[in-house]
Deep mutational scan, measured.
Amino acid sequence: KDKDLLKGLDQEQANEVIAVLQMHNIEANKIDSGKLGYSITVAEPDFTAAVYWIK
Rank of each mutant, 00 (worst) to 15 (best):
K1R: 11
K1E: 08
K1N: 10
K1V: 09
K1P: 11
D2W: 15
D2Q: 15
D2M: 14
D2V: 13
D2K: 11
D2H: 15
D2P: 12
D2E: 11
K3N: 05
K3L: 12
K3T: 07
K3D: 04
K3I: 13
K3Y: 09
D4P: 13
D4M: 15
D4L: 15
D4R: 12
L5Y: 02
L5F: 07
L5H: 02
L5I: 07
L5C: 06
L5W: 03
L5P: 02
L5T: 02
L6M: 11
L6G: 02
L6A: 06
L6S: 03
L6C: 13
K7T: 15
K7L: 12
K7P: 02
K7N: 11
K7H: 14
K7Q: 12
K7S: 13
K7Y: 11
K7M: 11
K7W: 14
G8Q: 04
G8T: 04
G8K: 03
G8C: 10
G8N: 08
G8R: 04
G8A: 04
G8L: 04
L9N: 01
L9W: 01
L9V: 03
L9P: 01
L9E: 02
D10Q: 08
D10W: 04
D10S: 15
Q11T: 08
Q11D: 13
Q11H: 11
Q11C: 13
E12C: 14
E12N: 12
E12L: 09
E12P: 04
E12Y: 10
E12I: 09
E12F: 12
E12G: 08
Q13N: 03
Q13V: 07
Q13A: 11
Q13F: 07
A14L: 04
A14C: 05
A14P: 01
A14I: 04
A14W: 03
A14Y: 03
A14V: 05
A14S: 04
A14N: 00
A14Q: 00
N15C: 11
N15E: 11
N15G: 04
N15F: 08
N15I: 06
E16I: 13
E16H: 14
E16A: 14
E16R: 14
V17I: 14
V17L: 10
V17A: 09
V17F: 10
V17H: 02
V17C: 09
V17E: 00
V17Y: 11
I18P: 00
I18E: 02
I18H: 03
I18N: 00
I18Y: 05
I18L: 10
A19D: 04
A19E: 07
A19W: 12
V20M: 15
V20I: 14
V20E: 04
V20W: 15
V20C: 11
V20R: 07
V20S: 04
V20H: 08
L21R: 00
L21V: 02
L21Q: 03
L21E: 00
L21F: 02
L21G: 01
L21P: 00
L21M: 03
L21T: 01
Q22Y: 10
Q22A: 14
Q22R: 13
Q22C: 11
Q22M: 12
Q22V: 08
Q22I: 11
Q22W: 11
M23I: 08
M23C: 10
M23Q: 09
M23K: 10
M23A: 13
M23P: 01
M23E: 08
M23Y: 10
M23D: 05
M23W: 06
H24F: 06
H24Q: 06
H24E: 01
H24P: 00
N25M: 07
N25C: 10
N25V: 03
N25D: 08
N25Q: 07
N25R: 06
I26P: 00
I26A: 02
I26C: 04
I26E: 01
I26V: 04
E27H: 14
E27M: 15
E27Y: 14
E27W: 13
E27T: 13
E27K: 15
E27G: 09
E27P: 14
A28H: 05
A28N: 01
A28L: 04
A28M: 01
N29S: 09
N29Q: 12
N29W: 12
N29V: 11
N29F: 12
N29G: 06
K30H: 03
K30I: 15
K30N: 03
K30Y: 07
K30L: 14
K30Q: 07
I31Y: 07
I31S: 05
I31L: 06
I31G: 02
D32L: 11
D32S: 08
D32I: 06
D32V: 06
D32H: 10
S33R: 15
S33I: 10
S33K: 15
S33W: 15
S33N: 15
S33D: 15
S33H: 15
G34R: 02
G34S: 03
G34C: 06
K35P: 14
K35I: 13
K35G: 11
K35C: 11
K35M: 11
K35F: 09
L36N: 12
L36V: 06
L36K: 11
L36R: 10
L36C: 13
L36F: 12
L36W: 12
L36D: 13
L36T: 09
G37A: 05
G37W: 07
G37T: 08
G37Y: 05
G37C: 08
G37M: 06
G37E: 04
Y38N: 01
Y38S: 01
Y38A: 01
Y38I: 11
Y38H: 03
S39M: 10
S39H: 09
S39V: 12
S39Y: 09
S39K: 13
S39N: 10
I40V: 10
I40F: 02
I40W: 02
I40Q: 01
I40A: 00
I40N: 00
T41Q: 09
T41Y: 09
T41C: 06
T41F: 07
T41V: 10
T41A: 05
T41D: 02
T41S: 08
T41W: 12
T41N: 03
V42L: 04
V42S: 00
V42H: 02
V42K: 00
V42I: 06
V42R: 00
V42W: 03
A43N: 06
A43F: 06
A43S: 10
A43P: 08
A43R: 13
A43K: 13
A43H: 08
A43I: 05
A43C: 06
A43M: 07
A43Y: 07
E44N: 05
E44G: 09
E44I: 08
E44Y: 08
E44R: 06
E44H: 09
E44C: 08
P45C: 13
P45N: 13
P45T: 14
P45L: 13
P45S: 15
P45K: 15
D46C: 08
D46G: 03
D46I: 05
D46A: 05
D46F: 09
D46M: 09
D46E: 05
F47C: 05
F47E: 03
F47A: 02
F47D: 00
F47G: 01
F47H: 05
F47M: 04
T48Q: 14
T48M: 13
T48P: 13
T48I: 12
T48L: 14
T48W: 14
A49V: 07
A49S: 08
A49R: 10
A49N: 10
A49G: 05
A50L: 03
A50I: 03
A50C: 05
A50P: 00
A50V: 03
A50K: 02
A50G: 03
V51M: 13
V51W: 13
V51Q: 13
Y52C: 11
Y52W: 08
Y52H: 10
Y52I: 08
Y52G: 07
Y52V: 06
W53L: 09
W53S: 02
W53T: 03
W53R: 01
W53D: 02
W53F: 07
W53Q: 02
I54L: 12
I54V: 08
I54D: 03
I54F: 05
I54N: 01
I54H: 03
K55P: 09
K55W: 14
K55S: 14
K55E: 15
K55V: 14
K55T: 15
K55R: 08
